[in-house]
Computed example of a mutant assay.
Amino acid sequence: MSLDAKTVAKMARLARVGLSDEQVHTYQKEMQGIIGWVDQLNEVDVTDVPPMIGTGLAQPRLRDDQVTDGNCREKVLSNAPDREGPFYTVPKVVE
């Protein structure tokens, strides 16, 4: 894949990066090098190599959903600044 100076300038404009003509040519060469490395990876034969991990291989660890109240009402209510019976009491906010 070839990357010309016009494309590099357009990418810089879209990224809101101001580049001089000299910088455009510098980044063009650097990006060409990166694209060359990616092209080298595409040449590697991976037909018999299984994937190391992926969404198709990973199984989520599930547990049954059990609804409980925790059986610790008194511990929870002991943290309340004020309570009435088994309920929190809060200041009235609506007149």
Rank of each mutant, 00 (worst) to 15 (best):
D65F: 03
D21N: 13
Y88G: 00
C72K: 13
R13A: 14
R73K: 13
P50W: 05
L77S: 05
Q40R: 14
L57H: 06
K29M: 15
M52N: 00
A15E: 10
V49Y: 02
V67I: 15
E43N: 05
I34T: 08
D39A: 07
A58T: 09
K75E: 14
P86L: 15
P86Q: 11
D21H: 07
L14E: 08
D4A: 09
D45T: 01
D69R: 10
K6W: 04
G56P: 01
L57P: 00
T7F: 08
R83K: 15
L57F: 03
P50M: 10
Y88D: 03
N79V: 01
S20T: 15
V8H: 00
V93R: 13
D39R: 07
V8D: 00
D64F: 02
V8P: 00
E74L: 08
E84R: 08
Q23C: 06
E95G: 05
D39C: 01
G33M: 14
A80F: 13
T89M: 11
A12H: 08
A80E: 09
V44F: 07
L62I: 04
A15L: 15
W37F: 04
P51C: 09
I53H: 04
P60F: 10
Q32L: 12
M1I: 07
D48A: 11
P81G: 01
V76D: 01
K92G: 02
P91E: 12
A5D: 07
G54V: 04
P60W: 11
N71S: 05
Q40D: 13
K92A: 02
V94W: 12
D39M: 10
P51Y: 05
Q66Y: 05
Q59W: 01
S20N: 06
G70Q: 09
V67C: 07
G18M: 12
L77R: 04
L19D: 01
Q28W: 07
V24D: 02
R83T: 06
Q32P: 01
P50C: 06
A9N: 05
C72H: 07
K29C: 09
Q40E: 15
V44W: 07
H25Y: 03
P60Q: 15
P86G: 04
E74I: 00
K75G: 04
D65Y: 10
A12C: 07
T89A: 10
D45P: 01
E30N: 06
L57E: 06
